[in-house]
């Protein structure tokens, strides 16, 4: 039996609905016989009547309602149809959910699922990676699972956490990534994972780019390089200790993100490693992100816009030569 990243997300939600009566799912097209634009909630409305609810196209009100329900003891899971549309809900997420515990001492346990990142032909408004924005503001946890196993255990963990969690699930991984079975338990939230061990270079990445980084590392093995790949798992909190320990082993750092290049997780990783572990570095740390334009529609342009295994390998070779 094999299970995809998307099925893992569905299975996690089924388990949550089964095990915890406080859980309900709220979002556009999640209910009925439809089960979501990507089918992440397929069959759940039937299996859990009244707990998987379709909403109007009102991202602000969807998150607002989730916040109100969470304050009253529920554990809502919001599905944004695409991460891009969560821009409409920014006010509720950043200013309401993100500030609430700090202001009132009452936490807001909502989980907002963001189908994130690029796929072929999706264009400027169905391809964005929004983790930078949510990580920048206080009061939120930002998860970016890169494996089927993490997609499953981290979503279950997200709902258990008393604070708001932004769960960035990558659409490219939905069908591309498969596992044999789902684990009972994952690494603790906030801990990065050494996805592949190496001694020559540390590549730090997350979400779909972690898979591209692994492919690049495999390619570089054939050239005699041993590349370590660190999967951040959560962008916030950022596991600086694991990063520093890896760079201490390799002396070289390359950070890969699919988001736009200004700021972001890759810049944050480099800032922390440089300020806390400057002495560990044998070469200036590098990073690779998407281009600083809206995300293009045409596959030729899209492939040129985002990092991929080949570009990562090229960047890594240059850094390894330094």
């Amino acid at each position: 039996m094999s299970i995809t990243y998307l099925e893992a997300i569905r299975e996690a939600q089924a388990k949550l609905l089964r095990d915890d009566e406080r859980v309900f799912i709220y979002g556009q097209d999640v209910g009925g016989t439809f089960g979501g634009a990507f089918k992440a909630t397929k069959g759940l409305a039937k299996e859990f009547p009244g707990r998987v609810l379709n909403t109007p196209i009102s991202e602000d009100a969807i998150v607002g309602a989730a916040i109100g329900a969470a304050m009253q003891g529920m554990r809502p899971i919001v599905e944004m149809q695409f991460a891009d549309f969560s821009s409409i809900a920014l006010n509720q997420i950043l200013n309401n959910a993100g500030t609430h515990y700090w202001r009132t001492n009452v936490p807001v346990p909502i989980t907002v699922r963001l189908p994130s990142g690029g796929t072929k032909g999706s264009g400027p408004f169905h391809s964005q990676s929004m983790e930078l924005i949510y990580a920048h503001y206080p009061g939120l946890i930002v998860m970016t699972p890169a494996t089927v196993e993490d997609a499953y255990t981290m979503l279950i963990e997200a709902v258990a956490i008393d604070d708001p969690v932004i769960y960035c699930e990558h659409k490219y991984l939905y069908y591309h990534l498969k596992a044999d079975k789902l684990p009972e338990k994952g690494l603790p939230t906030g801990r990065a994972r050494i996805a592949r061990e190496g001694r020559d270079l540390t590549i730090v990445s997350y979400s779909a780019m972690m898979q591209e980084s692994l492919a690049a590392a495999e390619e570089l093995t054939r050239e005699g390089f041993e590349v370590e790949v660190v999967d951040l798992r959560t962008v916030k909190p950022l596991d600086t200790d694991t990063l520093l320990a890896s760079v201490a082993r390799t002396g070289r750092l390359l950070c890969i993100g699919e988001s736009f290049p200004w700021g972001g997780a890759t810049a944050e990783v480099i800032a922390r490693v440089t300020s806390q572990g400057f002495h560990l570095l044998d070469a200036a740390p590098q990073r690779l992100n998407a281009k600083d334009t809206p995300i293009p529609y045409h596959p030729n342009l899209w492939n040129a816009h985002r990092p991929n295994a080949q570009k990562i390998a090229t960047k890594a070779r240059a850094l390894l030569r330094e």
Binding site: D60, G64, G68, M71, Q72, N95, N96
Partner: peptide, 24 residues
């Protein structure tokens, strides 16, 4: 409820609190 300055935001929050009461 503790209002935020961004007007209109608390209407849906109130609705959510009512949905929760219905669930419970």
């Amino acid at each position: 409820l503790a209002m935020i300055s961004h007007l209109g935001a608390m209407v849906s929050v109130t609705v959510g609190a009512l949905i929760a009461k219905r669930f419970k």
